[in-house]
């Protein structure tokens, strides 16, 4: 405590603390508001705190919004994409990093080019394509177009390249075939990067709005993001349940973040290293 504070440190500390409040305030408000009774939202002037709290909103939300279906769809969609994409990305990344074959460089360059194409440019033909395949408004229609990602291939490739040379040789000596070398020798070494990539996919797909909005048409197939956005658009539902639903939609990722923070951060930080 005997440390002397300079003006710069004091101002820095003050500003970051203010920013901390600005970042946290909406979340704290949401948590409080989700437990308020419905009539408290109509009070004027508005207040943050209420005179009584209860689980009313959390009970009524299941009747007002098809939240069970939204959760089920979101979990199947984002977990499905996560599992399949991590597998396919790691296979392709492995081959690009460690196997010599004709066209390796050219094909990898093509993969990097596809990373630059924004989804918004593709969305109309993608919609047409998924429709023609008869997969509109189905889980496969949501999962398959996202089942491999250029960023994932890029990330896995840079990891596999960093593994020691001649690792394959020990597998070949043991009589492994090429797939066993990848599966039994290489994959166990890249658990951290697979988790990083998996969480990156999970976060992006859980939160995505436009993609599931376009590829689903019935309310029962909507994801949390798309479904809640449509419900808010109608503007005739109650306040409490809407906020309760928003809080419930945020909670799973926030819980994963608390326990696996470094994987979230790594995914984002490595996406910045590719330049």
């Amino acid at each position: 405590m005997g440390r002397k504070w300079t003006w710069g440190q004091a101002i820095g500390c003050l500003l970051t603390a203010l920013l901390l409040i600005a970042v946290l305030h909406p979340f704290l408000w949401l948590v409080v508001a989700a437990f308020k009774p419905e009539n408290e939202f109509m009070k004027y002037p508005p207040t943050v705190f209420a005179s009584s709290y209860g689980f009313d909103s959390f009970i009524r939300v299941w009747d007002t919004i098809p939240l069970v279906a939204f959760f089920r769809n979101t979990i199947i969609f984002s977990a499905g994409v996560m599992a399949i994409s991590v597998l396919l990305d790691s296979m392709a990344g492995y081959a690009f990093a460690r196997l010599r074959f004709k066209g390796n460089k050219t094909l990898f360059t093509l993969v990097l080019i596809t990373m630059m194409v924004p989804f918004q440019v593709l969305m109309i033909p993608l919609f047409v394509e998924v429709f023609k395949l008869g997969m509109l408004d189905t889980y496969w229609g949501l999962i398959i177009p996202r089942a491999a990602s250029a960023f994932g291939i890029y990330l896995m490739r840079s990891f596999f390249i960093s593994l020691p040379k001649d690792l394959e040789e020990s597998g070949r000596v043991d009589g492994f075939n090429e797939f066993q070398i990848y599966w039994r020798l290489m994959l166990p070494l890249c658990k951290p990067v697979m988790i990083t990539l998996g969480i990156f996919h999970l976060m992006n797909n859980w939160n995505d709005l436009l993609y599931p909005l376009m590829l689903t048409s019935s309310t029962e197939m909507r994801t949390l993001s798309a479904g809640l956005a449509m419900f808010v658009g109608q503007r005739n539902i109650e306040y409490g349940p809407t906020l309760a639903a928003s809080l419930l939609a945020l909670l799973p990722l926030l819980i994963v973040y608390v326990f696996a923070q470094r994987f979230f951060v790594q995914g984002v930080a490595t996406s910045g290293m590719k330049g």
Partner: peptide, 25 residues
């Protein structure tokens, strides 16, 4: 053989990218 197995490793991912990124573009 590694130089042929490689195509099996990249085929699924590249098929997805081709079908759902290159073709739509």
């Amino acid at each position: 053989r590694p130089e042929r197995a490689a195509y099996l490793f990249i085929a699924p991912a590249l098929a997805i990218l081709l079908l759902f990124t290159v073709v739509p573009l």
